[in-house]
Amino acid sequence: MGLALLVIIWLITFFSTYFFVAQTWWLPHGAAKAAEFIDHQFALTYVLMGIVFVAAQGALGWLAWKYRDDGSSRKVEYSHGNTKLELIWTTLTAVLFVGLNLMGSHVWASERFEPAAAGSVPVEVTGMQFAWYFRYPGPDGKYGRTEAKLMDPSAGNDAAIGLDTTDPAAKDDVVTGTMYPPVKREVDITLRAVDVIHSFFVPSFRFKQDAVPGLAIHMHFTPTEIGEYEIPCAELCGLGHYKMHGMLHVVSQEDFDKWLAAREAEKQ
């Protein structure tokens, strides 16, 4: 049975590691500025943890086989442990874990402690059962007022988020069901939710943030590649959670300007 254990544990270790190393299933291609660093930190963590994983499982299988009771008269080593060894591995793990953590922290800081840079594109993102709406403030740079009692999800867009059309600042607001950010510009998003918690998740951007009723959460990201990206909702929000799905079309600056101008024209 010692040998069987060795074989089973080693096989499990081999297959588990193989699919990580072969990257058969992996993070989707990164298409935003943060992706490079996050992927790097991910790879680093994964190499270190991978080594520990293989070493620990390997040792477990080997010890089980090597020190099986084979009926011989071999003596068991009578020992209650070894304080020096104990201290060594405690220190090593502490250094490894805390060190890894500190290495990752500056990206977190730059993404979350500092507001978006001047000149970024403001977009307000609103989650509701079971759709995302995106609002651009228009030429005046100001979001118009929204009112809870005006919200009518079945009517979509402006009405869904309860835009108060009597507010002058609301006149030029553009509300859409698909997000169009220009490439290589920082997007300054304000995240809201009207009913329950949702989560704005863009796997390709390595971006995720919950949208919480009652809070307006400010975040920013910079798409780096033109293309279409999916936004699956990542916080359980009710029966339609699995189909709460938005799209992000990252376009060139010209296309963005054209698109926005066309939406503004429609409003007049």
Binding site: M49, F201, K208
Partner: peptide, 13 residues
């Protein structure tokens, strides 16, 4: 992985 906030971004939920 999950304990590092930056890595939790893609992995959470």
């Amino acid at each position: 992985f999950l304990a590092q906030p930056v890595l939790d971004i893609p992995l959470h939920d």
